[in-house]
């Protein structure tokens, strides 16, 4: 078809966590500009399969930008060159015919490579297990309209809650810091009245787990908020700092 593109891909291949890994170059030919980036990889993989070779492994699931499973560090940026979208929503028309595209996995100690471009992000789960919840059991809760929440607060909490846990913030950060992710989770509950009883315990537990996972520290470069597919703001990080220091300096709850 006319308008289709031929591309060169430099893809990180690594058989498993202990393999050293390296780049392998592939040709992606006759690629329609309407394909999503992942569909382009599907095409390459179909080719590899036909040759009886192992396809390029990458994580993906919903392919509509909400599950947070897709990743990929494309030409030096997480989720590729466009803002506010995940890789599955990136389309090939964002690239030029003949271009060479470098595809790498998220790089962080806390996100070890499992295979090729797939990494283990369970550190994010563990951080939330450390305290990212309101301790209520099923049943026996008050009527939903018993607590009035100002719209601005509800909206701001929602903005924090849109995080899809993809890890682009960590991938983008030169320090591999998870502060944007953790602070979005902390903020959502710190803003809402339901989250108040555990507010200062929660921030301490989650920060402690974040540190234990081996993420770097935040140096306020702001890369995370630029690369976040859900445009989570750095305001969350500063809010978490206030809560954290307040907890440490003025609150009884210690973890």
């Amino acid at each position: 078809m006319s308008g289709n593109m031929n591309l060169t891909l430099k893809v990180w291949r690594q058989a498993n966590a202990s393999d050293k890994g390296g780049f392998v170059t592939y040709k992606a030919e006759n690629i329609s500009p309407d394909m999503s980036f992942l569909e382009m990889l599907d095409v390459v993989n179909e080719d590899l399969l036909k040759k009886g070779t192992d396809p390029i492994h990458f994580d993906h699931d919903c392919r509509e930008g909400i599950c947070g499973m897709c990743s990929l560090y494309i030409n030096g940026r997480p989720h590729g060159p466009k803002r506010a979208i995940t890789t599955c929503q990136l389309h090939m028309r964002s690239f030029k015919d003949g271009e060479t595209i470098t595809i790498e996995p998220w790089r962080a100690t806390a996100f070890p490579v499992i295979k090729d471009l797939a990494v283990d992000r369970s550190a994010f789960d563990r951080i939330q297990q450390a305290g990212g919840y309101v301790s209520v059991n099923t049943g026996g809760v008050p009527d939903a309209n018993e607590i009035a929440i100002p719209k601005v607060i509800a909206d701001e909490a929602f903005n924090s809650a849109t995080c899809i846990q993809c890890g682009a913030c960590v991938a983008a950060c030169k320090n591999a810091s998870a502060m944007l992710f953790v602070s979005a989770k902390v903020s959502q509950l710190a803003l809402l009245p339901q989250g108040q009883p555990e507010r200062y315990r929660r921030v301490q537990s989650m920060v402690a787990q974040m540190d234990a996972e081996g993420f770097g520290g935040c140096t306020n470069t702001g890369a995370c908020e630029i690369e976040c597919p859900k445009e989570i703001s750095m305001t969350n990080i500063n809010r978490m700092r206030r809560d954290f220091f307040t907890a440490k300096l003025f609150k009884e709850e210690e973890i």
Partner: peptide
């Protein structure tokens, strides 16, 4: 926190 760096890093795009 990131012992293996990126082969291609486009930091100026975001910071």
């Amino acid at each position: 926190a990131r012992p293996v760096g990126y082969a291609q890093y486009n930091g100026s795009a975001n910071s």
